[in-house]
Design a protein around this nucleic acid. Structure first.
Lengths: 331, 331
DNA sequence: TTGTATGCGTTATCAA
DNA sequence: TTGATAACGCATACAA
């Protein structure tokens, strides 16, 4: 029953050659108006539309972009995916969502993307070591690759990310104007944490202000549970008079976990006892339940930049875009 | 530089015909061990791997599945996407994420999926009217389509969803055992709300118990903001002594918005003044900030079922799977 | 076990 | 403007 009809079939129905059919479906092609109408009529009757697969094989362009994601626990991925798909779709590209996990790592996924001939690969804040992208199994022919929402030092792999220097300066200036004296930082997994560069900038800022030691509270991963566990361990191990009074978290999700424990388990107040700040300005940061001071990444600008690079409308190079501080009650 | 090498090139390098190369890469093919090794060696040298695009054109199988999503504001989509991608990838399939929006509607997306020859389409809880899927522009040849996480009455389009009858019975029994007397329901957009079937079952339950009127509090969409707005309007318009004391929300996100307003703006207590229950058991439902009684959908089972149907390992028919009540403090 | 011919549905290029 | 030939890289069927 429902087989797709082909240009050849339409050609027969319209009494022309199949190339004329193709032309009728090619925007700039030179074709007589009469022929075009005949073709379109037949096409409508046969319910014809071009087979994009065959087109891709012939043009060497799939108009498909692979987006790698390895952290589905973070609700912050959603706005990124929403924006990425929307903007790329508006350019006629489609996004294939690749779940990077134990069974399907970066090398695997890159190889697969190459085999499927995608036009580009976008690493959406995934955690990888630089060596990974230089694996020998990856030929020099792999698709153009971009790193979104984290830094990268690999050349040939542009990073499109939030300008974290400005961001942390803004955040720190804002916090330093308040009476907090013992700042601490909650970080995520080392690989990604380093690539984000937030911790170093935070620590440097306070060190320059004469704060001797800035405690690091390491979370196992970027999830509410991990943030909660890290905070629980810290509070349990630290005498009340030695605790920090300001906790900067690498992102909102960690901050949520920390706040849950601070308030729910240790019955301390935010911000009076411990102030908390996050990063990403997740939806829930705005909720009165958290009211979390956070920092909004310029998602749309970042995605537009990636799109421009993918479509060769912009030079492929690392770019830092400015975000926006969103002050709230938590700090 | 980095052009992919082809079977033909490997064949020349290995001194065999290109068909032998193909065989070496075809699992069940009959080929001499010696030839296979020669081929593999050459393939390694030339960094060859089969072009899946060309394969798809020849086999009529893309091993690509399109997933339609239209509600990126709901964090609940993330576990669905995570599970869908992970399970399908483990079967060698890849998921293309289609953002259904104003500029790219269901018909558009379906047409496009068809042109790209995807093996299947999964509507992930998207809001559509049944007629949409029967649009005349969609030939009879469109890919097998499945509806995930909502009901569907279209024949030929199986729905894989949570068994809402059992779910609502469980929820209502649980709530009825508590001293609530004036239940109300917060619903989302009509199309989807109806397809979810939650409101009707909830209302029926209480009507059968002699509750005369069950107020409907309609939210514009499934977002925290919409839930908050709906609750704000209701509380503002309803005298304190006539207010409901139990609010069942169509999903968690609405419940979060409602709770934010109940507590943050009207300074009422949950559950003492108004108890709240949700649906989906989102990550944040477990947080002490909300501690929301909710209902967990059997996501993994649902996705496995879809996968089995896509891979023709299970009969393509509507299936209802049982979820799990997660009682917490909010109700 | 291996090689050959043919087809998948387009696009690119050239000739008419 | 139109038709024809070749090519994209693989798979299928058949013959050797």
């Amino acid at each position: 029953m429902g087989r797709r009809s082909t240009a050849k079939e339409v050609a027969e129905a319209a009494g022309v050659s199949k190339w004329t059919v193709i032309r009728a479906f090619t925007p700039g092609a030179s074709i007589a108006e009469a022929s075009r109408e005949k073709v379109m009529e037949a096409a409508r009757r046969l319910n014809y539309s071009p087979n994009l697969l065959a087109r891709s094989l012939a043009t060497n362009l799939t108009r498909q972009v692979a987006a790698f994601v390895d952290d589905f626990a973070n609700p912050h991925k959603l706005p990124f995916l929403a924006t990425l798909t929307e903007i790329l779709q508006s350019e006629g590209l489609v996004v294939t969502l690749i779940n990077i996990n134990r069974h399907f790592d970066h090398v695997h996924a890159l190889l697969n993307a190459d085999q499927r001939q995608v036009d580009a690969v976008v690493l959406c804040g995934t955690a990888f070591r630089d060596e990974t992208l230089q694996d020998k199994r990856l030929g020099p022919g792999t698709p153009p690759t971009f790193v979104l929402a984290r830094d990268s030092q690999i050349d040939g792999v542009p990073a499109i990310t939030c300008d974290v220097e400005t961001a942390m300066a803004e955040i720190c200036d804002y916090l330093a104007a308040k009476p907090y004296r013992r700042p601490g930082f909650m970080s995520g997994p080392r690989t990604l944490s380093t690539a984000l560069g937030r911790q170093r900038l935070f620590s440097d800022f306070w060190r320059n202000r004469g704060v001797p030691a800035i405690p690091d509270i390491p979370a196992a991963d970027y999830s509410i549970g991990a943030g909660a566990a890290a905070m629980r361990a810290y509070l349990a191990a630290t005498p009340a008079d030695q605790r920090l009074d300001l906790l900067m978290c690498e992102n909102d999700v960690l901050a949520f976990g920390a706040m849950d424990v601070i308030r729910g388990e240790f019955h301390l107040r935010v911000p009076e006892d411990i102030a908390v700040a996050g990063f990403d300005n997740t939806t829930f940061a705005a909720s009165p339940a958290y009211d979390l001071t956070s920092y909004e990444q310029p998602i749309e600008a970042m995605v537009r930049t990636v799109a421009d690079m993918i479509l060769d409308r912009a030079e492929k190079r690392t770019v830092y875009l400015k975000g926006r501080l969103v002050p709230r009650r938590s700090a």
